[in-house]
Design a protein around this nucleic acid. Structure first.
Lengths: 200, 200
DNA sequence: GGATTTCGGTACCGATCGGTACCGTCTTGT
DNA sequence: ACAAGACGGTACCGATCGGTACCGAAATCC
């Protein structure tokens, strides 16, 4: 028997929701393209809403894990997040940020899907703040800077979506670099092994 | 007779589409809330898609006219666009940028609605570039700077939407100010009546 | 004042929406 | 080997989707 109907539902739904929008994709489509029977779907999820939340929750974890892995591989500098973004923007199936899209599509801020999406963004802010703290920025300054860097990330994502090019990632990186250059890290807490000043 | 069914349809549809999303609002709702008869609707528009395009086209003009008016009233400086944005963010019915939302909801980039939304953003870039050129920036630099300023505007819009506060407008303004401070206008072309350096 | 146009209301269309119930089948754990 | 559970397929449900056809009333134009 084909294994794990639940996993196939999540995979198919994630791809379709991201590519065409949550509301634009009906349960019918997901069943047809995943090969899962109708009854099996409602055995695993109470309804479409629960599927949406499950997809977003899984993507939240996967996306942040991916970001952390890429940033680490690129050098662990805060500005490396923009180079990670550039990789995403260059993919043919890039369709913006699934969580921004969810908040746009799901207008009700009290909706479970909206909440998951909002929480995702907050966790990204916390991650960037941690990156900044690692480079010696005091906690309060790291939080404020992270806020602005995520604003730049979101701006780059939206711009990349509407222009269809990965260029906005580099633009946002340049702007963020100016931001960090104007605010040097605190007194001697930064990583002594940091590369000179070529990047980041 | 109640006047101008077409105008009422546009007003009602614009409000509902912006508040709840294009796909989330059916023709039925628009007819009920506008008080327009079903037949009258299809007399004025070939279908829902045409209504969407008409709404977006009208909003494009109205939004850019509003932006130009507010910026002029605030002083005509490029950075004034962020103060104009802040006013929008503070409104209770703020739900992000209708054109970003349209591009997110309408995945197909060849769709008429998507094209109108993309064209709107390009015209905003052109407008900001004109503001920069007025302050003495050479045309090519003005275009590049405008691109980045609109990236900041979009980032502020998305951030304001997900946080529900107008604060991101001021954040983006500060970042943009650093951007402009690092790149002084060209050789003596700026407006001699410009205010010192307090803002903009 | 009569004709034309625009209007609102309603009935109806096929298609699709999310969701439920029931069926026979196949895999797996013991 | 056998029972238990997960599976795919189908029929069906009421509601709503976008869209068409037709009607009588009301306002405008000549």
């Amino acid at each position: 028997m084909a294994t794990h109907a639940r996993a196939r539902l999540l995979d198919t739904a994630e791809a379709l929701f991201y590519a065409e929008g949550i509301r634009a994709v009906g349960v019918e489509r997901i069943l047809a393209e995943s090969g899962v029977g109708r009854a099996s779907f409602y055995r695993h999820f109470t309804g479409k809403d629960a599927l949406v939340v499950a997809v977003l929750t899984r993507r939240d974890r996967a996306w942040r894990d991916w970001l952390a892995d890429r940033v680490t591989a690129l050098g662990g500098r805060p500005l490396d997040v923009f180079d990670a973004l550039a990789e995403r923007f260059a993919r043919a199936d890039f369709r913006g940020c699934a969580f921004i899209n969810t908040m746009v599509e799901t207008a009700d801020p009290d909706s479970p899907a909206h909440r998951v999406a909002a929480a995702h963004k907050q966790q990204v802010v916390d991650y960037v703040a941690a990156l900044l703290a690692d480079r010696g920025h005091p906690a309060d300054r790291a939080a404020a800077l992270a806020h602005r860097i995520v604003l730049l990330m979101d701006g780059a994502i939206v711009t990349a979506l509407r222009e269809g090019t990965p260029a906005p990632a580099a633009e946002a990186r340049t702007i963020a670099a100016a931001l960090l250059a104007a605010e040097p890290p605190g007194p001697g807490l930064e990583d002594p092994c940091a590369e000179p000043a070529a990047r980041g």
